[in-house]
Simulated scan of single mutants.
Amino acid sequence: MIKSKKKDIRKLSSDKIKDFLVENGEKGFRAKQIQDWLWKSSVTSFEDMTNISKKTRELLNEHFEILPISVFKAQQSNDGTIKSAFQLHDKHLVEGVLIPAEPRMTACISSQVGCSLTCSFCATGYMDRKRNLDAAEIYDQVVAIDKQAQDAYNTGLTNIVYMGMGEPLLNYKNVLESVEKITSPNGLGMSAKRITVSTAGIAKMIRKLGDDDVKFNLALSLHAANDEKRNQIMPINEQNTLEVLREALKYYFSKTKNPVTYEYIVFNNFNDSLQDAEELYQFTKHLPSKVNIIEYNPISEADFLNAKVDKIQRFADYLSKKGVNVHVRRSRGKDIDAACGQLANKEK
């Protein structure tokens, strides 16, 4: 692929665009109009910027490019879930999911092409990490999935979860930039409280979230509350032990006052006993939190099975009686491999 000499205009700040315009004899106030077209209106061509003169559009087109994502393939599940393979400008593919669950309309979006963390139960973990997504590529997924929601259900998105392909905290800068654009009145204007960023547990970056006083929600993909078991399924735990994670989460909460969500997939005969539930309670009791119990969605690369329904309920009841705010989440989009842990666009 021949690398373009043009700059990606969405990587420039409004001030940088303004400087460029002034240097080229244009009015500086046009920068605000251009930014509105790029982010509020999500245009993909300079020609669509209709309140800007043809001469200025030609100048922009000569020096810059817009690199939008496109829907490569979309599938709709029997339960109404829509999974999309999004193609990036360099032909890489990532997946995003629209999850309609009254009263919510949730977009599950990706932050990396592939993943480097090799969690044994997750299809994405069996892929190589090719690269991080730019803030604009993350943003574009939200715009595209919102359009799908409008077209299919006549309503816009209510929630966004960074739970697709990749580890968001290993793409920290772009993830935070994308949240800023999504929540900005000069972007999509969504509330940060409607956004959840999920991590497999990068302790130093959890602390950084606290230092940056983020307003969005944080979820930890826990899945086992003792180190021996968690090491087996999540190698990241070897460098980020449960004790280290607990201290990082306490620091994060002390800075942000945001409760933490713990995601816990229940695997048959692995982490579904009452002893496991007790260990989970002991881990979560240190700060305000909630626990989402998640059904496991089998993948061809792994031998795990979902726990039995009665065991899941007994597990949840045990936590509830301990005063834990616990919810059992049912899988959505399993028939099209759109459920939790199943995203893996195998590139050809």
Score class of each variant (00 low, 15 high):
224 A>W: 03
233 I>Q: 08
223 H>L: 04
218 L>V: 01
218 L>W: 04
212 D>H: 05
205 M>F: 08
233 I>G: 04
199 T>N: 07
224 A>V: 02
204 K>N: 14
189 G>S: 07
219 A>W: 08
234 M>N: 13
231 N>A: 13
225 A>K: 01
232 Q>S: 15
201 G>Y: 13
207 R>N: 04
200 A>W: 00
236 I>A: 05
199 T>S: 13
224 A>E: 02
238 E>N: 14
238 E>P: 00
196 T>D: 08
222 L>F: 07
197 V>N: 04
232 Q>N: 14
197 V>A: 04
192 A>V: 06
219 A>G: 04
224 A>C: 02
199 T>M: 04
196 T>H: 09
189 G>R: 04
202 I>Q: 07
237 N>I: 06
214 V>N: 02
225 A>W: 04
222 L>C: 04
225 A>V: 00
204 K>L: 10
200 A>T: 12
211 D>P: 00
228 E>W: 07
225 A>G: 01
213 D>V: 06
236 I>F: 00
241 T>F: 10
230 R>W: 12
213 D>T: 09
228 E>Y: 12
196 T>W: 09
223 H>E: 11
233 I>C: 07
190 M>T: 05
217 N>A: 05
234 M>A: 14
228 E>P: 00
230 R>Y: 11
217 N>C: 08
193 K>I: 07
237 N>Q: 11
210 G>L: 03
197 V>E: 09
193 K>Y: 14
195 I>V: 07
211 D>F: 02
189 G>Q: 06
197 V>H: 05
225 A>S: 08
193 K>G: 10
241 T>H: 08
221 S>L: 03
